[in-house]
Simulated scan of single mutants.
Amino acid sequence: MIEAEAGRAYPGGARHGRVVHSLGRQIVTGELAPGDPLPVEERLVAELGVGRSAVREGVKVLAGKGLLESRTSAGTRIRPRESWSLLDPDVLGWRFEPGPRPEDVRLLADLRVALEPGAARVAAERADAAGIRGIDEALAALYATADDPDAFIEADLAFHRAVFAASGNDLLLHAYEMISIALRSVRHVHTRVVSHNKETLPGHERVALAIRRHHHRKAEEAMREVVEVARADAERTAMDAKDAHD
Rank of each mutant, 00 (worst) to 15 (best):
residue 173 L to W: 03
residue 129 A to I: 12
residue 221 E to F: 11
residue 146 A to V: 14
residue 202 P to R: 13
residue 102 P to M: 04
residue 84 W to C: 04
residue 192 R to K: 04
residue 127 A to I: 09
residue 46 A to Q: 06
residue 80 P to E: 10
residue 79 R to I: 01
residue 216 H to L: 06
residue 100 P to D: 07
residue 202 P to T: 15
residue 186 V to R: 12
residue 77 R to K: 01
residue 198 K to A: 12
residue 115 L to P: 13
residue 133 R to A: 04
residue 17 G to F: 00
residue 136 D to T: 00
residue 176 Y to P: 15
residue 52 R to S: 09
residue 225 E to Q: 09
residue 181 I to W: 01
residue 112 R to L: 08
residue 220 E to Q: 07
residue 65 K to L: 02
residue 2 I to A: 13
residue 55 V to L: 02
residue 115 L to G: 13
residue 20 V to C: 00
residue 226 V to R: 07
residue 164 F to M: 15
residue 28 V to C: 01
residue 172 L to Y: 10
residue 113 V to I: 10
residue 239 M to G: 12
residue 195 S to L: 04
residue 63 A to C: 00
residue 179 I to F: 14
residue 192 R to D: 10
residue 187 R to W: 09
residue 224 R to I: 06
residue 24 G to I: 05
residue 9 A to S: 11
residue 242 K to Q: 10
residue 155 A to H: 07
residue 35 G to M: 09
residue 223 M to F: 07
residue 201 L to C: 07
residue 231 R to G: 02
residue 44 L to F: 08
residue 44 L to A: 01
residue 175 A to E: 15
residue 227 V to F: 01
residue 84 W to T: 07
residue 14 A to K: 14
residue 108 L to W: 06
residue 198 K to L: 11
residue 126 R to A: 14
residue 234 A to Y: 00
residue 182 A to C: 03
residue 22 S to F: 10
residue 125 E to N: 00
residue 84 W to G: 09
residue 237 T to K: 13
residue 90 D to V: 08
residue 30 G to R: 07
residue 147 D to G: 03
residue 112 R to V: 09
residue 16 H to L: 09
residue 96 F to T: 09
residue 185 S to W: 11
residue 170 D to Q: 09
residue 179 I to R: 01
residue 192 R to F: 04
residue 125 E to P: 06
residue 204 H to G: 03
residue 186 V to I: 15
residue 78 I to C: 06
residue 50 V to W: 07
residue 205 E to V: 00
residue 67 L to E: 02
residue 6 A to M: 07
residue 204 H to M: 05
residue 229 V to W: 10
residue 164 F to E: 09
residue 189 V to I: 07
residue 97 E to G: 05
residue 114 A to I: 14
residue 134 G to V: 01
residue 103 E to M: 06
residue 67 L to Y: 12
residue 124 A to T: 05
residue 41 E to N: 02
residue 167 S to W: 02
residue 14 A to S: 08
residue 178 M to I: 11
residue 84 W to E: 02
residue 147 D to T: 04
residue 13 G to Q: 11
residue 93 G to W: 06
residue 132 I to K: 12
residue 211 I to Q: 03
residue 171 L to V: 14
residue 90 D to K: 00
residue 149 P to I: 04
residue 130 A to M: 09
residue 13 G to T: 13
residue 183 L to Q: 05
residue 226 V to F: 10
residue 219 A to K: 00
residue 198 K to W: 02
residue 89 P to G: 14
residue 240 D to N: 11
residue 213 R to P: 10
residue 12 G to A: 06
residue 215 H to K: 11
residue 186 V to S: 15
residue 43 R to H: 07
residue 90 D to G: 03
residue 199 E to R: 12
residue 26 Q to W: 10
residue 189 V to W: 11
residue 137 E to R: 09
residue 180 S to V: 11
residue 106 R to H: 03
residue 21 H to P: 04
residue 191 T to F: 12
residue 170 D to T: 12
residue 242 K to V: 12
residue 74 A to Y: 04
residue 178 M to C: 08
residue 52 R to V: 03
residue 40 V to I: 14
residue 222 A to S: 11
residue 155 A to R: 00
residue 25 R to I: 05
residue 201 L to M: 10
